[in-house]
Write a protein that binds this DNA or RNA. Sequence first.
DNA 1: GCCAACGTTGGC
DNA 2: GCCAACGTTGGC
Length: 166
Amino acid sequence: MSPKESKKFWLMKTEPDVFSFEDLVNAPNRTTHWEGVRNYQARNFMRDSFKKGDQVLIYHSNVDEPAVFGVATVVREGYPDHFALDPKSKYFDSDAKKKGESPWIMVDVQATHRFKTPVTRNQLKNIAKAKTMMVLQRGARLSVQPVSEEHFNLILELGSPSKITK
DNA sequence: GCCAACGTTGGC
DNA sequence: GCCAACGTTGGC
């Protein structure tokens, strides 16, 4: 991939009932493996394009007030999501089990900055420069998506990030 | 809770 | 390969 095509900024959705930004902050070393992505396009981003040091906006979906809560960084690049092979996991994939290997990919991310003010979807919808963000488009279900540097910086300004030091 | 939009599956 | 049926996502 040429440098021009490489992406440095991403957005990842999570349902906070399942795993919230604070869960990430409270995880050992503020780091977790981002398992359970079961969409090919999202997987391909993690497999082919995620690089160490890339920055990721963490977005809460499927809640009353969807919003970006903070920033994480990629600390381990794509590797097989073995939860697909574990019958006890909610992310079990019986086809993968039959083949004996997982076609799914996860990455490790570490929380770096918490927003003093989460940047809400409603807020973004009212900002002209943000309207083209993928996450705001109607029917945009992709759970891992690229974000332009401009949009990333805009959201950082809006969120007043503070570095997490604990 | 509703339902539009989307991705996947499978019959043909 | 088409496309209807189905299951899921996720905003509202």
